[in-house]
Nucleic acid binder design. Sequence first.
DNA 1: GATAGTAGTTACCTAATGGAAAGTGGTTAC
DNA 2: GTAACCACTTTCCATTAGGTAACTACTATC
Lengths: 121, 121
Amino acid sequence: METIENKILPNKEECAGALKNVFDAIYVLNGKWKLPLVLSLMQSSKRFNEIQKEINGISPKVLANELKDLELNFLIKRNVYPTTPVSIVYEATDYSYTLKNILIELSHWGENHRNKVKGKV
Amino acid sequence: METIENKILPNKEECAGALKNVFDAIYVLNGKWKLPLVLSLMQSSKRFNEIQKEINGISPKVLANELKDLELNFLIKRNVYPTTPVSIVYEATDYSYTLKNILIELSHWGENHRNKVKGKV
DNA sequence: GATAGTAGTTACCTAATGGAAAGTGGTTAC
DNA sequence: GTAACCACTTTCCATTAGGTAACTACTATC
């Protein structure tokens, strides 16, 4: 069965490269929270407490860590506005939009998989 | 800046759904190994020891666990051939090819991100 | 002066992930 | 019969992720 798939995942060298690439991507995007956080901020910029409310169940400690991590990888930006008191607003970066396709595909797959599992049970 | 992105991630309800979907997908595909394993088996079916060799650094315990998990989620198939001694060959399933787009996007992103980080350092 | 909100930090704890090393039960080759 | 291969399993351990709760420093409001 040499089907269409082989057009996209062709030969051994390219697949070894793909394997390494996928590993590298997972290394940066690991954990429960990073991709959902980026997605949330892509939808709209938010303050710390607003993120906590939307991303149900994340603790302030974990949220603070994840935000720092994402900032180090250029995936979000922390803006401090000199109001009184200061407002701190997190926003998606131009670079974070390079994750758009991954997020779209993950969203489709997650929805489809949920339906598949529901159907089976 | 109401740009192209808004065509794909439009309103609040749809984004809440997308968030849930991404969460569900990550729940199934979490960890360092699952997506690389699926990718490896999409490239070609393999035996246990062959997988260990290709996926550098995975221990037999972890590999056995991950393979069971993936099988439960219909993402790989464990075939036992009645040779002497029996050969056990793991292969990708039709369902695992629904991850193809995610893997392609992750591979592109991982490669691009590696270059970006290299460029910065 | 007390209360509440904002944006976290700190200390402590548990659970899950993952790794090393050895063992198991079978077969095959020398 | 001994060594090696296959496909794991078992045991033990270290690391990490993630959660709870309390606390901080500041400001605003009642």
